[in-house]
Amino acid sequence: MSHAELVCPAGTPAALRTAVDAGADAVYCGFQNATNARNFPGLNFTPDELAVAVLYAHGKGTKVLLALNTYPPAGKFDLWRQAADLGARLGVDAFIVADMGVADYIARAHPQARLHLSVQAAASTPEAIRYYCAHFGVKRVVLPRILTIPEIRQIRKEIPCEIETFIFGNHGLMVEGRCSLTNYLTGQSTNMDGVCSPASDVEYVRDADGAMSSRLAGFTIDRFGPDEMAGYPTICKGRYTAPHRPEEYYAFEEPVSLNLSRLLPELIGAGVHAFKIEGRQRSKSYVRGVVAAFRQAVDDIRAGHAANIADLLALTEGQKQTQGAFETKKWR
C-alpha cells in the first residue's frame, strides 16, 4: 500500500501551524511574490516566516514543500533563482516546479534538492512525466485533475516517480499552466504573476431589476437573481450565452468543489502516493477541519477499516460537489 501522504495548504504561517497540528504529513507554501501560483494579497511567507515555519514543521515531523510553480517571463528569472536558493538554504524538503528553466536551475545548483512536478506543468502522460524525471530528476508528479482512476493506475505502472493527486477543494477546469483567461481580461497573468481572477478586479453590482452581477475587470462573469447567492467571478465558472444556448449556461463548468473522499480507497489502490488538499487562500478553521477529517479517513483506510467520510461530506455541505474527471470520462 502507498504511504497515502496528506499534503496540505499553508497560505499563512498560522495556517501552516494549524495544518501541521491537524496531522498533515506535508504542507505546501510559497513566497510573497510571483514565484508561486497563489500570489494573492495577504497570503504566503516572508523569508523569515518561512525559516520559522520550516523549524516548526520539522519539529513535528512534517515536510515543507515550496511552490515555485509559475513561469518566469524573460528578464525576471532572477526572482525565481533567488527563491530557489533561499528555499534550499532554509531546508525545505522539496520544490514544486513547472518551468523547465527553473527545474534545470535547481537540478544543477542544488543537486541534493528534491523536485516535485507541479500540476502547472500539465504532464498527463507517462511520456511527459518521464521527460521531467529523466532530465531533472523529478521524484513526484502532481497529476492534472483530468484523469480517471484507471488512467492513473496505468500511468503509475509506466513512470519511475511518485504520484500526487488533488482530492479536495477548488476545482480548476482548464489545463493548468496553459490558461491565459485571467490575463486576457485583467492584464495579470496566471502563469507569470501567479494570479487567477484577482480580487482587486472583482466587483458586485446590483442591477436595476434586483439581480446581482459579479464582474471581473468590468466583464459580467455571472448574474444572480435576488434569491441566489452571488458567486465569485472566476472566468471558467461563469455563465454565458452561445448561439445554441440562448439561455445562459455554465459554458465550462458549474462552480463545484472537488471532493474525492469517496474515492480515497480506490486512489490508494491505484498507487497514488500523496493526496493534495487545495486551499492556500482558506481560513485556519477550514484548514483545521479538512486536514483533521482527511487525516482520520486516511488512517482508517490504512488500518484496514472503512473510512467514515460523513465529516468530509459535511465540510462542503450546501455546496455543489463533484468527483470531477476521476470517476468517469463522460465528464469530458
Binding site: A98, D99, M100, G101
Partner: peptide, 10 residues
C-alpha cells in the same frame, strides 16, 4: 511555455 531565457537555453 518557452517563457524565458533559461528555458530556451535548456
Amino acid at each position: 511555455n518557452a517563457y524565458n531565457e533559461a528555458t530556451i537555453m535548456w
